[in-house]
Design a protein around this nucleic acid. Structure first.
Lengths: 172, 172
DNA sequence: CCAAATTGTTTTAAGCCTAAAATGTTTCCC
DNA sequence: GGGAAACATTTTAGGCTTAAAACAATTTGG
């Protein structure tokens, strides 16, 4: 092979991104598989929550956030944690206050802020649901070895960081 | 160590599931991380589709299914592939037919069945969007090495199989 | 053949969700 | 102090989503 080949290859690889569209089929497949897994588990959890406890998944998720915050959270905290829009939280909270699971009060130091907490009823019901929920998840992931789980945790952490970085690049 | 210890351990592990609640915190964390990754990527893709092409993610997903099926698909095919409810597809298709992206006709051999296809416009627009979409995904997963991608594919395949098995156990 | 079960789709009712605009409140800083 | 910017929440308009019931057409098993 002639000595110039390295140079040619360099030029090729430098111009490749411009001249020939890169192949990202693998990443695309990965994304679709990730989505499939999530949809599968989510659908299963949604159905079981409805059948066993007549509760929706978003309500359960919101209560899960509040269970971890005994002193309550503001609506924007919840919104950020759940990665949903503000307006979405407003409606969700409204319904859960209505049903007696949540307590909502205006902060005394900042009248813009609404602080929400689980009521005694809300906490009791959530704990009951969460215990069973945990066994569903364990069952859904039952075929993964502890090593699989560790490895997935690691790779998904990397995935999350990558996606966050990419999102930040676009919206600095 | 006495010879009976094996026996004791066996009994312990057999009764453990009944007497002491198992710890499934790791699986739970894995599920939450999986959900976070998906939500992150999905939100990013949704936003870019809206800004760049003024199209919603579900519409894009539906067109993606049809692009892979030049001879068209029935509504239930689409519903199964997308893992959404029948009624959902009905509405989605309605809007895409209205906007001229889809063609819908009743099957000649089975009058229950509706076959939908991309129109020329629909296919052209989808191809345009898909090309850019692929670069977004590549960018979102950019920090993963090819090995990471392979390993994730493998572990998510296992995860998918596990979840499907669990779902089938409950709904045989 | 024909009733019953099955299959494919639509309808219904309710809730979820988003982006963007509007409203009210606080902070910043000149 | 006072106006502008920033922040927290709600409202709005539109679309997405589901489960369940209803409807229509086909297949199946006596």
């Amino acid at each position: 092979m002639p000595a110039v080949s390295d140079c040619t290859e360099m030029l090729d690889s430098e111009t490749k991104a411009v001249e020939t569209p890169e192949d990202h089929a693998e990443e695309l497949r990965l994304w679709l598989r990730l989505l499939t897994c999530t949809t599968l588990v989510e659908g299963e959890v949604r159905g079981r929550l409805r059948q066993r406890f007549d509760v929706t998944l978003p309500r359960f998720d919101l209560m899960a956030q509040l269970d971890k915050a005994p002193d309550g959270m503001t609506l924007s905290d919840v919104s950020k944690r759940m990665m949903v829009s503000n307006g979405n939280v407003t409606g969700l909270v409204e319904r859960l206050v209505e049903s007696g699971h949540l307590d909502r009060r205006t902060s005394e130091t900042d009248r813009r802020v609404q602080v929400i907490r689980l009521t005694k009823l809300g906490r009791a019901e959530f704990r009951r649901m969460a215990a069973e929920h945990e066994t569903w998840i364990a069952d859904l992931f039952a075929d993964l070895t502890p090593k699989d789980v560790r490895e997935l945790m690691r790779l998904l952490a990397k995935t999350k960081a990558s996606a966050q970085k990419s999102a930040a690049r676009r919206r600095p």
